[in-house]
């Protein structure tokens, strides 16, 4: 049982939870995720770790309500517990000094798992430019934290209620055109990552994305998370969650993510 220590709302349907998990806090690296389970009959849900505090023995998770299980998670209050929490899972982000700008772009709650990666690239001595995108200003999260570790932050909203009006790709393209970008990291909805990948492929900028496919066990057993990357079958839970975005078959991934739509709500 892992206790919720702190809870805050980023928006009506997006919640930040600080959770007791001392071993995970110690072992995790940027890019890692955990699996949580809420309630006796709960589903196993993968969530990328947004932050960790080794001294306090806690990790931070950012959750968006999209279905039965995330609704249960978002209803948890400080003092409540996850029935189960396991991790850290997946491969950590390959962070290092790059010959040029590292451009980090996050869409919606994708900004949460992006934050530790931004932090790590900054600490590795890179110039980091971040592009945060959402439908409107209420859905832009963690702007202050991202700004703390970025040399520059661009905000893009669909309706122009914050930053500039436009899609994430407009912001990314602007940065690529004006300075030498060595690597792009894109985390967000599959459709967003797909279009960022299409754009950066045009400019031949290496791009990493973090996939949030369906998982059951999350430990390399069920194969629900499988996706073709560069024509090869890969398992997001153990081979990922990060892959070369130019090689990922996003259309396949997007189609497979709907596999259980008639069964959940």
């Amino acid at each position: 049982m892992n206790r919720i220590i702190e809870k805050s709302h980023f928006s009506e349907h997006v919640v930040k939870l600080v959770v007791e998990a001392p071993e995970v806090a110690k072992a995790r690296k940027p890019g890692h995720f955990v699996i949580v389970r809420t309630g006796q009959g709960g589903e196993r849900i993968p969530l990328t770790i947004a932050d960790a505090d080794v001294a306090a023995g806690t990790i931070t998770l950012v959750v968006q309500e999209v279905g039965v299980s995330t609704r249960k998670i978002c209803a948890l209050e400080p003092g409540d517990c996850f029935n189960d929490l396991v991790g850290p899972l997946g491969r950590a982000t390959a962070v290092g000094k790059r010959e040029g700008t590292v451009l980090c772009c996050g869409g919606g709650v994708g900004v949460a798992p992006l934050l530790p990666i931004i932090k790590a690239f900054k600490e590795a001595g890179n110039r980091v430019v971040s592009v945060l995108a959402a439908r409107n200003k209420d859905l832009i999260i963690l702007q202050e934290e991202v700004a703390r570790y970025s040399d520059e932050v661009l905000i893009m909203t669909d309706d122009g209620s914050a930053g500039r009006k436009g899609l994430v790709t407009a912001g990314v393209e602007e940065v690529i055109q004006r300075e030498h970008v060595a690597e792009v990291v894109a985390i967000g909805p599959a459709v967003m990552m797909k279009f960022v990948a299409l754009l950066t492929k045009k400019y031949e900028v290496p791009t990493i994305c973090s996939l949030n496919t369906i998982m059951v066990d999350g430990t390399g057993m069920c194969g629900a998370c499988r996706v073709h990357v560069g024509g090869k079958l890969r398992f997001v839970c153990v081979d990922g969650p990060e892959f070369d975005a130019h090689q990922v078959d996003f259309d396949e991934m997007i189609s497979r993510m709907k596999a259980y739509d008639p069964y959940t709500n």
Binding site: G41, G42, E43, R44, K72, C222, G223, S255, K258, T264
Partner: peptide, 29 residues
Amino acid sequence: ELSGVMSSNEYLTRINLMGAGRPGYDTPV
């Protein structure tokens, strides 16, 4: 890669471990 094609591990894990298909369990099958 089509939806509805899965491994036996996935199918059996959903039902045996996760209780999918029984009342009170959230995992779909």
